[in-house]
Design a protein around this nucleic acid. Structure first.
Length: 221
DNA sequence: GCATTAACCACCG
DNA sequence: CGGTGGTTAATGC
C-alpha cells in the first residue's frame, strides 16, 4: 500500500491535527527491503519509527552461538521500534523482511515532536506498548506450558492482533514457510501444527493464506 | 522421541 | 512454470 494508505489505516495518524498529519506525511521516507534482508540490525542506533507499508517482517534476536529466538512478527499496517526510540538506545533485536517489503520510516525527531505535542499520540503509544507487554507475558507462559501448536497459535494471534495491526481482516496471505519462520520451527512442523489448529476449528488454511476463525481461542490456546 | 533437513512429487495460479 | 503444500526418509540432539 502507499504511504498515504498506511497513514489512513493507522489510528494514531487519524488522531493528529491536520497540520501534524501533514508534517508527518512530508517527513516519512520509504525503504524497499528485499526478502531475507535486515530492516535494522541489533546494535544499530534507533533513528526512525518503522511502519510496514507492504510485506511482512519478523523481530528476533540472535545469541553469539547462533541460536535465535523469534520475538514477534509484524504484517503490513503495523508499526514497530518505538521502544528503542523512547529509550534512545541501540536496537536490542534484528528486524528481518520475511518477504519483499516496503518500510515507512518516521525520523526520530518527528517521533519525539509528536510525543511532545500530541496527547492522543502518547495514548496510542501507551496502548501499543501495553498490548505488546501482554503478548510477551502470554509468550513466556505458553512457551513453558504448551507444545508446538501453542507457539504457532500465539505467533498467529500476535500477527492478527487488532491493536498492533488495526484494519487487518481475518485472512492474511501467509505461507506455511512463513508461519514456520515466525514461530521458530521448520515448515514441515508448522504444517502439522496448522492442521491440528484447523482440526480444532480455530483457523482455516488455504493455498498461501491463513484465515483466523477464533482469535480469542488462539490467544488462550 | 521429537524435531530438522533434504528430497520428491502433486497441485494451484 | 514457479511457488506452495504434503509426505517421507535420513540425521541429530
Amino acid at each position: 500500500m502507499s504511504l498515504d494508505a498506511l497513514l489512513a489505516r493507522s489510528p494514531w495518524a487519524a488522531a493528529l491535527t491536520p497540520a501534524q498529519r501533514e508534517r508527518v506525511r512530508a517527513e516519512l521516507r520509504e525503504r524497499a527491503v528485499p526478502q531475507g534482508a535486515y530492516v535494522i540490525r541489533k546494535g544499530d542506533r534507533a533513528d526512525s519509527w518503522l511502519g510496514v507499508a507492504d510485506g511482512l517482517v519478523k523481530v528476533h534476536c540472535a545469541s553469539p552461538s547462533g541460536k535465535r529466538a523469534t520475538l514477534t512478527g509484524v504484517p503490513a499496517g503495523g508499526w514497530l521500534g518505538e521502544g528503542s526510540l523512547i529509550k534512545r538506545e541501540a536496537l536490542r533485536y534484528d528486524v528481518v523482511a520475511l518477504r519483499d517489503s516496503r518500510i515507512a520510516c518516521m525520523p526520530g525527531a518527528t517521533f519525539r515532536w509528536l510525543q511532545e505535542t500530541s496527547l492522543p499520540f502518547n495514548r496510542y503509544l501507551l496502548d501499543q506498548l501495553n498490548e505488546r507487554l501482554g503478548l510477551f507475558i502470554a509468550t513466556v507462559e505458553h512457551e513453558r506450558l504448551h507444545g508446538i501448536e501453542g507457539r504457532v497459535a500465539r505467533a498467529l494471534a500476535t500477527l492478527f492482533n487488532p491493536v498492533l495491526c488495526p484494519g487487518l481482516g481475518p485472512a492474511l496471505h501467509l505461507t506455511q514457510e512463513e508461519v514456520g519462520l515466525l514461530a521458530g520451527m521448520s515448515r514441515q512442523r508448522a504444517n502439522a501444527a496448522l492442521k491440528v489448529l484447523e482440526g480444532e476449528g480455530l483457523l482455516a488454511v488455504e493455498h498461501g493464506a491463513v484465515h483466523v476463525l477464533d482469535l480469542e481461542a488462539l490467544r488462550r490456546y
